[in-house]
Design a protein around this nucleic acid. Structure first.
Lengths: 138, 138
DNA sequence: CGATTAATGCACTTCCATTGCATCCAAAGT
DNA sequence: ACTTTGGATGCAATGGAAGTGCATTAATCG
C-alpha cells in the first residue's frame, strides 16, 4: 500500500483504483474543482461514479465543499483533522471574478465575529470575491 | 402614488401592480426568500414573472442575492444606498441549520481580513451557520 | 386614440444534481 | 480455489431550478 491508500483507509474509505486516481489528481490542484471539471478530466469514467466518489470523500472528511456563490459546488482537499460535520476548514475562500478559480487561503482564518444573543455558531463560510494574484496584473 | 411606488420609481423600476405586491411582501419578511417561496405565496402569478421581478429588483439595488450555501439563492431587501454592482450589504448572513431560514444581520459587519499580496477584493460574503435565537431553545 | 415600449405569461430548453437498478469487482469465509 | 456477500461502478432515467424565446397584454407618450 502506498501513502494515498493508507490515507484513504485511515479515513474508512476503501482505496479503489478510481478513488486513488481522483485523490491524487485533487491533491495536485491548487484550486477547487467542480464535478464537471472532474468529468472533463476523467472522461473515461462515469459522472455518477465521480459524483459518488467526491461525495464519499466529503462524508469522510477528505474534501470539503465550497460554495463560492457561483451556484455550482466546488471541492478541495481538507486540512488535517477534518471529519464529517466537523470540518476544521474555517479558512477563507477566494473566488476570482476573472478566471473563476476558487482557492483556499488556509493561512487566513476567518476573523472573530460577534452575534446577537441567542445565536449559536456551528460553522462559518467566508468567500472573498475579487482578482487573484494571477489576474490582477493590468 | 404611495410610498412604495415612489421608492420603486426612484430606483428606476416601473411600479407595476406585481412589483408593488412583491416589494410589500418582501418588506414584511424578516428572513430571505427563495424564488420558490415567492412562487408558493404568489400562486396566481407565473414563475417567470417572479423570476424577472426579483432580477429587476436585484439589478436596481432593491434586493441583494444571498448565497447561504444551500445552493439555492435567496433574496432580501437591501440596506439604503445600494446600487447594482455596488451593494453596501457587507453585513453577515446567518443561516439556521434547523429552520433553514437565512437572515441579514445588518448590524454585524464583516471583520477586516488580510489577503496575500496581489489579491484585490471586490466583494465579500460571510455566512454563519448555526442555530438562530428561535431554534436555540432546547 | 394610435403608436411604441415595457411587462407578463406560457412553453420550452438547459444544466446539473440525484436516484434506481443491474453489473462488476474485491474482500472474507469455507 | 470456490462461493458468498457487500460495496463500487456504469448506464439510464428522474427531478429541480434557472434561464430563454416569443406571443400577448398592459402602460406610457405623443
Amino acid at each position: 500500500m502506498n501513502e494515498i491508500e493508507i490515507f484513504l483507509a485511515s479515513k474508512n474509505v476503501r482505496p479503489t483504483a478510481m478513488r486513488i486516481l481522483v485523490f491524487r489528481w485533487l491533491a495536485k490542484r491548487k484550486t477547487a474543482v467542480t464535478l464537471t471539471d472532474m468529468e472533463v478530466f476523467f472522461e473515461k469514467s462515469d459522472r455518477t461514479t465521480l459524483y459518488r466518489t467526491i461525495k464519499t470523500f466529503e462524508e469522510n472528511g477528505i474534501v470539503h465543499r465550497i460554495n463560492d456563490g457561483g451556484g455550482i459546488p466546488k471541492y478541495a482537499i481538507c486540512a488535517e483533522g477534518c471529519r464529517y460535520g466537523e470540518h476544521h476548514d474555517l479558512h477563507l475562500h477566494f473566488h476570482c471574478t476573472r478566471c473563476d478559480e476558487t482557492s483556499c487561503l488556509t493561512d487566513h482564518q476567518i476573523p472573530q465575529v460577534n452575534l446577537p444573543k441567542g445565536y449559536l455558531v456551528e460553522d462559518m463560510n467566508l468567500v472573498v470575491n475579487g482578482l487573484c494574484d494571477s489576474c490582477n496584473v493590468d
